[in-house]
Computed example of a mutant assay.
Amino acid sequence: MNWKRAKTLFIFVFILVNIGLVIIYIDKVNKSHINDSEDENAVNFKQEEIKIPDNLPSVKNLKMQLLTARSNDFSDYVKGHDHLSSAQSGSLLKGDISSPIDVSNDQYTDLKSYVKDKVYKGSNYEMSQINNKNVTFEQTYNNYPIMNNNKARLQFNVNDNGKASSYKQTAMKSIEPSEGANNDEKQVITARRAIEALYYNQYLKRNDEVMNTRLGYYTVVKEPNVQVLEANWEIKVKHHNKITTYYVEAVSDSPKIIEE
C-alpha cells in the first residue's frame, strides 16, 4: 500500500468533511437568526389581552392571484323551468320550492342536497350564514368562497314554520386569472400575519376577540358586469358587544385592510 498517497487522500477527505460541517453550521446560524427575527416581530396576543383562535387555517405552499369574473345571465336558463323566473336584466334568478324544505332544529342536510341536485350549478356554493329568515350560500372558486358579494350568492327564504320555500340566486361566470404582467401567483400570508396587520393598524385592541378567520376572494373592483376578485382574509372581531368584519389582503407583505 502507498501510505503517502493514502495519507494525502485522508487529509483531503478530512478537509471536505470540515468544509461540510462549516456549511451546515452557517446554515443553522442563519436560520436561527431568521427565526429570532420572526419571534421578535410576532405579537404576543396573550400579553396584549387579545383572544385569537387556537387553530388557524394552514396556507403552506398556497398561492393565489387576481381573478376577473362576469355576472351570469339567467334569461335563457329560466325558459322551460316553470318554477323559475329572472329579474334585473337576467342577473337575478328566482325560484319557488314546490315542497318547502324543513330547516328547523339546525337540520340542513335536505337543503344542502336540494342545492346540489336542483339549483343551477349548486355544487359551486357553500353555506355561509344562517338566521331565522334566511339561509345564505356563497359561490366558490377552487373551493374558496367569493365573500360578501351579492353577485355570487344563493339565499333561501325561511317561512314562519321553519321551512325554506323560495330562493334568489346570482352567479359569476368566466372566472379566470386577470390579464396583466404583474398577476403572477403569490404566496398567501398566514392568518396570524393578517391578524397582526389588524393589530399594527390599530383595528385590533386590548380586550378584543378574533371570532373567526377564513380565506376567500373579495371584490376590489366592481363594474356593472365585470368584477376583479382578490384573495383576502375575512376576519371577524368582537369589540366589546359589537362584531366588525375586516378584509385583509392575503398576498401582500403590507396588506390593505377594508372594514365592513
Rank of each mutant, 00 (worst) to 15 (best):
T245M: 14
L154A: 00
S98H: 12
K46I: 00
V188E: 01
M1F: 11
E179G: 03
Y167I: 02
K236L: 10
E179Q: 04
K63D: 03
S85G: 08
T170G: 01
I52Q: 03
P53S: 03
K256Q: 12
R5H: 12
F12W: 14
S86K: 12
D102R: 03
N148H: 07
F10V: 12
N183E: 07
K31P: 07
N35G: 08
I19T: 00
Q107Y: 06
I175W: 05
N41K: 08
N18K: 15
S123G: 10
P57T: 13
V43I: 05
E209D: 15
V210E: 05
N142W: 00
K205L: 09
S85V: 05
I26F: 10
K222A: 04
S58W: 14
S58Y: 12
N131T: 15
N161M: 11
K63A: 04
K163E: 00
G95A: 08
E48R: 11
E249D: 11
I50T: 04
K133N: 15
E176Q: 07
T8W: 13
M64R: 01
D76H: 10
I189D: 03
N143T: 10
R70M: 13
N105M: 02
L92K: 05
E185N: 15
E176S: 13
H33P: 04
S89G: 13
V188C: 04
H81Q: 03
G20T: 14
N157W: 15
Y200D: 02
K205S: 08
E260M: 03
D39S: 15
W233G: 08
K4W: 09
M127T: 12
Q88W: 14
A231L: 03
E49K: 05
F137E: 03
Q65M: 02
N105Q: 13
L56V: 07
